[in-house]
Design a binder for these strands. Structure first.
Lengths: 180, 180
DNA sequence: AACGTGATGCCAGTCACTGACACAACGCGG
DNA sequence: CCGCGTTGTGTCAGTGACTGGCATCACGTT
């Protein structure tokens, strides 16, 4: 992180990172499959946290409600770790290669969420659709929160799902959707 | 494409591609920024087609309705070019590096769709949300279509948006969503 | 003390990609 | 017909991400 902030991701060589960590370059690649992966280490934890949160939601809850709860819990960790993850976001935002990797991680997490919904008894088709669209709303809320940190991530999340509902309902009554 | 099919993406060097095309390796990199980009060439066309389709939708149409129309048009091209794009999908599906690039392209196209919705007068917030979730539903439909080509992509698209509406409505009445 | 195991250093090699320079084909005004 | 800029290409050298192979070393076990 130090090096990525100082000189940017592209101008930082694997040898430099290894040197800063006091190890050999080869050793670096034994700990991380590639240079990008360094910034996406906690993925396994986030995955299990998300899946557990979906699994622990009350029985009769609608899919989107279960997702909303799960996202809220993750959001709490997100908001707390902000001083730590803020520079990380900045680096990712300005580096296309890192954004690609981030999207891949998100796709993987979306698949995990779909699996969690299936375990709740939801059909495979609806589980996939709910996971994809729910994740999309989640990401929208996160971006809105970054742009407007005055309101809480929780509030942005609530609004995102409410707006999604309005959009979906308006879609079949053939009325233009209002802006908030 | 020939080489990627024969030996896979990873085991195909840029020098081989250049040789097969009868040019120098350096020349190859003057036409494509990198090895992956070869498979994502028509992106600009798809982007303009999508944005035009969204722009040309009737005035008072709800955001999701406009998107559904645009996706339908793109879907038509998709279904027609299937013999050409089918091997392409297979190569992408088994190559993580290519799936990452594909996700990046999708993110870029989603942003373009959001811009098109904004030009229809939709607020920036709702435009982003509608583009993200609409695109998610689109991708869900495409995947469902690949898994079940018996039904048309059009049918899958219609169902995806109908299911999304059901999911969103059920979310606030706190009822478990039914599976089709 | 012998031994297996896991983490590390070291070395050589492949390959994606880049910058610099030279050269040839082409269209165009003189 | 001649210069001349533009464009596309070949050639070469270099950087840096990653990989496989081998030796070494720390450590706990037998």
């Amino acid at each position: 992180m130090e090096l990525y902030q100082e000189q940017g991701f592209d101008r930082t060589t694997a040898a430099e990172i290894a040197a800063r960590a006091g190890v050999n370059e080869r050793t670096f690649f034994r700990h991380f499959p590639d240079k990008r992966e360094v910034l996406f280490d906690g993925e396994a934890e986030l995955r299990t946290a998300l899946m557990r949160a979906v699994a622990e939601a009350p029985e009769g809850l609608a899919p989107f409600e279960a997702l909303l709860r799960a996202f809220r819990k993750s959001a709490r960790n997100l908001a707390d770790n902000r001083p730590f993850s803020d520079p990380r976001w900045k680096v990712i935002a300005v580096t296309p290669a890192l954004r690609e990797r981030e999207l891949a991680k998100h796709a993987s997490l979306t698949e995990a969420v779909a699996e969690a919904l299936r375990r709740r008894g939801l059909g495979a088709g609806l589980a996939d659709l709910a996971a994809r669209t729910g994740w999309a709303a989640f990401q929208h809320a996160v971006q809105a929160w970054i742009a407007d940190p005055a309101r809480s991530l929780d509030a942005h999340l609530t609004q995102a799902f409410a707006d999604l509902r309005a959009l979906a309902v308006a879609a079949l009554s053939t009325q233009a959707g209002p802006e908030h």
